[in-house]
Design a protein around this nucleic acid. Structure first.
Lengths: 210, 210
DNA sequence: TGACAAAGTGTACAAAAGTTCACTATATTT
DNA sequence: AAATATAGTGAACTTTTGTACACTTTGTCA
């Protein structure tokens, strides 16, 4: 295990990484000093020496711009084999297969390790707040496994009266409900509803904060 | 279309790329000359100038080791379908760079379209319920942009008293708080806390339902 | 309180690295 | 054969950059 860094050393290490990222070559001592308002190159040098001693950097003595970050991963391998491409569905319309070409608005890639070996997936933008207590918000992207059955307790995409909806599928005694996870919404009893169809099971949510 | 290169220019361009690959910083004119038995740095310089003129390199005048190969940004690797590889961090420890090799427990791919052009990202498994009202649950995967600053209202990963925490960064008047999004937790006043550091800003959450 | 470590200053200096110029050599083209 | 582009030499010079030292400041900890 490498030694701990001081706050200053951490900041400087960060700066060097960012600098290299941007320019493809490392900064000079003076450039580092400029960034942190360290007037003397000696002050900078001591930080660099400390970082070298602790094993985070390497330098070549008397050589300009020879700072190199140790143990930096080149983004070399991208194991593309493990990436899956998923269609993004615009809307779930009654009477059409979800994955019909007309419905596909795009395609996105995601690591299969995040999908628990599921197949037949599609992405869907969430509309509405009915599932906020499950951490599914308006605008989120849900990843859905296309299937016409599900287990008690699954969160599903369903068609009820030709309207698509996102709810939790719950069996209580002899009745079946689509339960919202938001006190402002009412459960939907679909026990005897002939116009109720399961479209798929939600296996993941993705939300990006702008 | 860029201009054709002479044999010599091609060799030198290749050498520069190899050198950078090996040392993480570019060679000096003298180092290039040494490699090709060019005794005069002027001979080397003319090749470099030609390569710059033809658009294959950039340099900073009067600046040492400032040769950068054009159109060879490191991130840009893995452009296949614009998928980005993100390191999965085991823990955020005080006094160590987050992205230190020791902390990287894995790597996962995700479509860059889902990341809003962010860079310097890492993934982190959430521990604790302090942000449930923002739809971030225990066990979720958050994607974090490594940065030491943030805006009012951002959800951030921070170190407070050497403990890592996930909170919303809020400025109220002259005070700064880390606000949980769970009534069971108390806000943390970090206004005068010297042992408070921003690690990064949460840009996305991913949760899979098993 | 006093010792110690981390951090910063200012100056000076030496080594490294980029710049310039006049000149030569060898192909290729006109 | 003359003109031109590419390539190389050697020396001199300027700027950049790393190194060194003595001294100050600040915070921590025993």
């Amino acid at each position: 295990m490498r030694k701990k860094l001081t706050q200053r050393q951490l900041e400087i290490l960060n700066f060097i990484e960012e600098f290299v990222e941007e320019y493809n070559y490392p900064p000079t001592y003076r450039q580092i000093g400029e960034k942190f308002n360290i007037a003397s190159t000696f002050g900078v040098k001591r930080h660099i020496d400390a970082l070298v001693k602790k094993g985070y950097l390497t330098t070549e003595s008397n050589s300009s711009r020879s700072i190199a970050v140790k143990g930096q991963k080149r983004n070399g391998d991208c194991k593309e084999n493990s990436t899956v491409s998923i269609p993004l569905i615009g809307r779930v319309a009654a009477g059409y297969p979800v994955l019909a070409e007309e419905n596909i608005e795009g395609q996105f890639n995601i690591d299969s390790a995040l999908l628990n070996n599921n197949t037949n997936l599609f992405g869907l933008k969430v509309r509405g707040d009915s599932m906020i207590n499950s951490g599914i918000f308006d605008g989120d992207l849900v990843i859905v496994k296309s299937q016409n059955y599900c287990n008690n307790g699954d969160i599903i995409v369903a068609l009820v009266e030709d309207e698509s909806t996102l709810k939790r599928y719950v069996k209580k005694g002899r009745k079946t409900f689509l339960m919202p996870e938001n006190p402002d919404f009412e459960p939907i009893d679909v026990t005897k509803n002939k116009n109720f169809h399961i479209v798929g099971k939600v296996i993941a949510v993705y939300r990006s904060f702008n």
